[in-house]
Each structure stands twice: as structure tokens, then as C-alpha cells.
Design a protein around this nucleic acid. Structure first.
Lengths: 338, 338
DNA sequence: CTGAAAGCGCTTACAG
DNA sequence: CTGAAAGCGCTTACAG
């Protein structure tokens, strides 16, 4: 392996000078610099990241923590974050908290200690005890979706997004509206599911439409889960004229349930989602758009700023991105006979 | 920060002994061990990964390289890999090659040099020049989908998977079958797209069914891309009775094209995919199943074995996982009037 | 602008 | 079973 000493020897300078011309901010004589660069190039020198980290105290790696990787939101945002970080010379260490056989399903502070320069939390809810442990780490952190402590946060207004969706259905004339996506299980602590269902209830009440409790359904936020949750309702005597799913992935499940029960969409049933999943266009799904890559970029920039300033306690920042309605083909006025 | 010296002092032993009881394989007196463990625990000691790496030459991090993160296959397999690796004490450094504004769209050997213990390649095609650079890295590598050099590979038989799909359509009586998913652009070098379209052609020819070149369509392997590619064909006078999409994501686009052109599925058009995407069940999509998490686990295990043996040149291994037909509701015999 | 030297926090033969 | 010491490959004040 070629080390900094090899380069120094070839260039006829000290290792300190090599280090300075390659990474340091200090002044180096242009002719010296040229010799060093040439030597490094000839030897195909690549500095050892591990040695640089130990000596400098900075790893140039960022931890990205998500509750799972296999859902559209997370896959999309991780892509954007990775691109953004790589452009600035940082690497992404991925922590997917999905519980598996033997996998913890939770993070441990040792994952991060002395290993990363900062942490990006993607919609992960943290207990007070965990929060205390994280504080000891003394690392810059930025959150997306769910806030942790007083860390900067990037998010959309989930309450408003859900209200936009409900309002769309109301304005089409629907009064018999069901909802699927009440938080359960592993997502019970996340703020997005709670905010969206709260907005559903409030918006209906505000419009003078009573909320039928039997029509507010829990699901695990997968297509299959939503399909199972909704199908019985669609088969019952008294069924809704519209279903709002808390996510597009669940809306796809509702579409499946409609197909299984022989209901035409939107003639017999309007179906609406939230998110604007990449399949929403092809499926003609009416939804509320959120810009996920933009959230990833914003979060990456915020964290980078904190890392570079070596600020552990960055001033509280909150970046809220806009959402907007995208009506497509799965929503329509309820049939007169409905 | 608490270091190994702090633990040594508190336990009344040398740092060497602390190192040995915490990580080493050498024998340590049980009573000494207990004192060290207690001291480490009391101080909440976490060894510096960076110092361990520099001293030992092993980083315990694995590079996972994928052409993108935002597609179902990659998101699913990365989840499985991450779980598997974390269980064994390894970390995942993610390299998503998706080109962005400023992002290279390609990997560079410096990404990996002295930074990771091994590389997992997920369906990324590598040029001979790149392959030569990688060889110099002298790192254990394992591939999924597309082979690189003589590295061990985990894959499905894409040719067989596509043949299974075509055979299903033929057995239903279809003879007018279109195909979408000829490789273009960034996926032009990947073996999966090439293998699947080749199998489509060969299976038809073998069955005595002529291949209409105008019905073999290129697309970028997204739902929207496939929808755009297929819609004109569905609007033409002479249209197929069935469309095979090279992936379920594209099949969803075909479903969208059918909806836009007013064709009923499967009455007017059979639609078939390959992969068994997590939405396939809800959408009733007929497809050919592949077990993606199993591929991830197999690849992780293969790489781990190579890393632990410090084998750079592991004996060529090829693990081929089975696929099987899952007929659902989007395929049916062609209508008599078709 | 440049070099000598200490130091980052571990691991690992080498002795004992 | 345990300790002293060298070494991993850099960075960074400190002098000059």
C-alpha cells in the first residue's frame, strides 16, 4: 500500500507538506505543490480515510437512520441524501431499523459513537431514554418528519396535507368517507400517521360531517395491509362513497380491495391517497403531492452546515415544505344512487 | 472522551489486556476479565472504530453499490443486506450511482480504498477499465445479478423467469403478445434486461409464433416510462391481446396505459409482469416471483465468508435462486373476438 | 512556506 | 495470562 511517506519521499518533501498540499488549508509554494501532486498521481496515492479520521477527529461519514428502507418515501429520500452528501465529499452509513430475525429493530448509541460526523434521522421516533443517550454522543443531528429534542427538522405539514385531501373529497360532494391508516404497531410513535388521522377527523367535524368510528381503520401502511383492512368495509351493506388512505401505498391497497369486491373506481368508490408515489400517475391516483427529494436535500444541507461548524447544538431550525393537491382519475362526485 | 487508557487505569491493568478482553481471542484470566468489563461498563466505554481500523487493518464496513435506490428491487435487497450485515457486526456504506446534478453517476475506486472490507455489487455493470481498477483494490467482492470478473454471484435465471412468463401467456392462448422493457440508456449494460428480452423472443419463436419487431418496446424500466411506450400501441388498429412487461413496475405502467385507452384488463388485454413486486398482490398482477431478500442474504453471507478468510480471490461461486409463476387476475385467455 | 515531532486510540507480536 | 513497546498512517500546532 502506498502511504503518505512514499509520496513525500518521491516529491522530496516532508509528510507534513504532502498532507498540507493534499488537504490542508495552509499555503504551499506552487512549485512544491506541483511536485507533490505529480508524485501522488504517479503513485496513485489515496490517503487512508481511517488514518485521516483518527488524526483529525472527523470521519466524513454521515449516519442515515430510517425505520425501514423498503418503502417509497425512504428509498426516495435516501437516494437524494446520498447524492447530495457524496457531492460534498461525505459518505453515507445506512442504518435501517427494520426488525429482523436477530436484528435489533432499534439503534444503539455505539452505532454512531466516534464513527460518524453527524446523524440524519428519517422519520424515526425516539424514546426519552434514547434521546438522553443520543445527547451524550454530542453529534450534530437533523431530523426529517419527526422531531428529536431541539434538532433542526425538515418536514411537510402533515395536518394540512390530510386536510387538503379530505377537502377535495368533500368538495366533490362526498359525505360518507372512510379512512385507513390509523397508526399501529411499529409506526405507532411516528407523528405523520397521528397528524394525518387527526386532520381527517377535524376536517370532517369542521364541515359538519360526523365521523363514523367504524370507518376509521388501522393498517400497517402497506398496500396489502390496507387492502385487508378495507375489504370487509366495502363488502358491508352500508359502505362509504370514498376512502382516504393515509398514504398512496395504502391507497393502492384500497384500489385492490375495490377490484376484489367488484366496485368500480371512481363510479362506485372514490379513492384518494397522500404522497404522490411514483406509481400514482400510472394508476391515475388522486393524491396530495409532497416533494421527497427536496426534503432530503434540505436535511443534508442543514446537517452539513452543522457538521462543518462543529456546532453540536445548532439553533433550532424548522423547514416546512409545501404540498399540493393532484386530482387524477380515482376521485369523482358520488353517484346519485350512492 | 473515554479511551482504552481510562479503562485500563480504572481496572488496574494494561491497555493490552483491555483490548484483549474486549475484542481479542487470546486467553484472559476470568477475574481480570471481570474487572475490565466492570470498568468499561462503568465508564460507558466504546472503542474508537477509527483507531481499531487503523491498528487492525479491518474496518468492519461493507460497501453496497447500486445503480439506484429508488426502485423496489434495490430497496428490498438493501434492507435484507443491511439486516444481515448488522447482525454480524458489520456496517453498510451506501453508494447509489444514480446520476444527479453534480453526482458522478459512477463509482471511483477511491470510494472504497482502505475504507471498506468488501464490496457488494447490486446489478451494476462495470466496464473493463473499471474492472481493472477494482482488481487493484484487492478487496473481496460479491455481485448480485450481474457478474464482475470472477467474483461470486447471486442471481436468478432471468432467461427462465421470462420464459415462464411467456409460456403462461402462450398457454392461455395468446399469440399476439407485445413486450416492453428492451434496455435503453443507463440500464443498457445490465444483463437482466438483455436476458429477459432474449428469452421473450426465443420462447415465441420456439412456439412458432412470429415476433413482431414493432411490438418489442424500449423503456426505462419505470411505470411512467412503460406507460408512455405502450399507450400508442394500445391505441393502434392492430393491437396485441397481451403485453409482457420485463418488470412489475413497468407492468403497472401498462395497466395505466390500458386504463387510459379504455381497455379492460384482462378482458381486452392481458398484462403480465416479472418480479412479484410488493404491490403485485393488491393489483392482482400476474407475475413471476423472485425472492429478493433471499438474494440479499445469500450475497451478504458469501461476502462475509470471503472477508473473514481475508480471501481476496474467493473461488468462483454462483448461487442461482428459483423463480415461479404467480398467475393472478390480469391474465386470461384472449377474447374470441380479439 | 516547510520540517520535526507529538499525538490520535487502538492492536499485536514479543517477552516474560 | 499479562505488560511494554512498536506501529497503523495520518494531522497539526510549534518553530524556524
Amino acid at each position: 500500500m502506498v502511504t503518505i511517506a512514499d509520496v513525500a519521499q518521491r516529491a522530496g518533501v516532508s509528510v507534513a507538506t504532502v498532507s498540507r498540499t493534499l488537504h490542508g488549508s495552509a499555503k504551499v509554494d506552487p512549485r512544491t505543490r506541483a511536485r507533490v501532486l505529480a508524485a501522488a498521481d504517479e503513485l496513485s496515492y489515496v490517503a487512508s480515510p481511517t488514518a485521516m479520521s483518527l488524526a483529525s477527529g472527523r470521519t466524513h461519514v454521515i449516519a442515515v437512520v430510517a425505520p425501514m428502507m423498503s418503502r417509497w418515501f425512504f428509498a426516495s429520500i435516501v437516494t437524494a441524501i446520498e447524492q447530495n452528501l457524496r457531492e460534498t465529499g461525505y459518505h453515507v452509513m445506512l442504518f435501517s431499523l427494520e426488525a429482523g430475525p436477530g436484528a435489533p429493530g432499534r439503534f444503539r448509541p455505539e452505532f454512531f459513537a466516534k464513527r460518524v460526523d453527524g446523524i440524519l434521522w428519517l422519520n424515526v421516533a425516539v424514546t426519552p431514554a434514547e434521546e438522553a443517550l443520543l445527547a451524550k454522543l454530542d453529534l450534530p443531528m437533523v431530523c426529517v418528519g419527526t422531531q428529536i429534542g431541539d434538532s433542526p427538522t425538515v418536514l411537510i405539514d402533515d395536518h394540512r396535507a390530510a386536510r387538503t385531501a379530505v377537502t377535495h373529497l368533500l368538495s366533490l360532494g362526498h359525505r360518507e368517507i372512510a379512512y385507513v391508516g390509523t397508526p399501529v404497531g411499529s409506526i405507532a410513535h411516528m407523528t405523520t400517521p397521528a397528524a394525518r388521522v387527526a386532520a381527517f377527523r377535524e376536517t370532517l367535524v369542521h364541515a359538519g360531517v360526523p365521523v363514523r368510528e367504524g370507518w376509521v381503520l388501522a393498517a400497517d401502511w402497506t398496500a396489502d395491509g390496507a387492502m385487508e383492512a378495507v375489504e370487509p368495509l366495502l363488502r358491508s351493506d352500508r359502505r362509504p362513497t370514498a376512502v382516504l388512505a393515509a398514504s398512496d401505498e395504502m391507497a393502492i391497497g384500497v384500489l385492490g380491495a375495490a377490484a376484489r369486491t367488484g366496485l368500480r373506481v371512481p363510479e362506485d368508490l372514490s379513492v384518494m391517497g397522500i404522497d404522490d408515489h411514483s406509481f400514482a400517475g400510472a394508476l391515475g391516483l388522486s393524491t396530495v403531492h409532497q416533494d421527497v427529494p427536496a426534503q432530503g436535500r434540505a436535511a443534508a444541507q442543514l446537517l452539513l452546515a452543522a457538521v462543518r461548524n462543529r456546532d453540536t447544538r445548532t439553533p433550532a431550525t424548522r423547514i416546512e415544505l409545501a404540498t399540493h393537491l393532484i386530482p387524477r382519475q380515482t376521485t369523482a362526485p358520488p353517484q346519485a344512487a350512492g
